[in-house]
């Protein structure tokens, strides 16, 4: 395994005349948690699509080492499958069946939803659904998690709880994470490194390393300081 599972070299992506990303360089280390923030419509999701291989750059190269899974903003669970069946999608290459069942049970325990294994997504709350999605993305031998504003459709308290939950899960099952968000606090509370993008066409405006072990409190001075720093970079605080 490479020590840099994700590498973008001089990447540009345009749609017709519109340049969305221009000359972007980014390397993400093994086990690193990188948050990507920026003005809305700046190309964060386009960047994630390039990282996942769903989209190809118009120029430059994207290198990817390891299996990529994406956690979507909302509704990424297949509604005709139960929570357990959805998680099992992430385990489908695991043989024999007994091993698969064991891992499924471990994951359900991990997200504390073992009583809801046979519930369908529409029978779960928003927070529970996101926990199932994260479990599916962590399942099996995935290496890289791409998260596209995964908590943005949740209410504020649930969102705070999900941040703690994600930090806890990643401590147990470390992964390389790229986390796109418009929530600056969320980025500051969770990430090892926050990448601030410019307006379109997006390139990196600033990079901020936050060297504080997770889980972190939202009101930890280092988190508050980082939040201020990012807001200032975006021109939203003096």
């Amino acid at each position: 395994m490479s020590d840099k599972p994700l590498r973008l070299h001089n990447v540009s992506r345009s749609f017709g005349e519109v340049a969305v990303i221009q000359g972007l360089n980014l390397e993400i280390g093994h086990g690193e948690f990188v948050a990507i923030v920026g003005p809305s419509g700046c190309g964060k999701t386009t960047l994630l699509n390039l990282l996942s291989g769903f989209d190809k750059p118009t120029a430059g190269t994207v290198e990817r080492f390891g299996q990529v899974r994406t956690v979507y903003q909302q509704g990424g669970l297949l509604p005709w499958l139960t929570a357990a069946q959805n998680i099992s999608l992430g385990l489908r290459h695991i043989m024999p069946k007994a091993k698969q069942d064991q891992q499924l049970q471990d994951l359900l325990n991990l997200i504390r939803l073992d009583g809801f294994a046979h519930h369908y997504p529409h029978q779960l709350s928003g927070g529970m659904r996101q926990r199932v999605e994260i479990a599916r993305a962590l399942a099996g031998d995935s290496d890289i998690l791409l998260m596209d504003e995964p908590f943005s459709s949740l209410d504020y308290l649930t969102r705070l709880r999900m941040r703690q939950e994600l930090a806890r899960l990643l401590a147990l099952r470390p992964r390389t994470v790229v986390f796109v968000t418009h929530d600056i606090e969320e980025a500051a509370q969770l990430a090892d490194r926050v990448v601030v993008l410019t307006e379109r066409p997006a390139h990196i405006q600033d990079t901020l390393a936050i060297e504080l072990p997770r889980p972190r409190n939202l009101t930890d001075p280092a988190v508050v300081h980082a939040t201020h720093h990012i807001l200032a970079k975006l021109g939203l605080e003096d």
């Binding site: 996942s52 769903f54 990529v68 899974r69 994406t70 979507y72 509704g75 990424g76 669970l77 297949l78 999608l89 992430g90 489908r92 290459h93």
Partner: peptide, 11 residues
């Protein structure tokens, strides 16, 4: 489309 993307992600 997210359903197809999820399916694609899982091979």
């Amino acid at each position: 489309t997210v359903y197809f993307r999820v399916a694609h992600d899982h091979g």
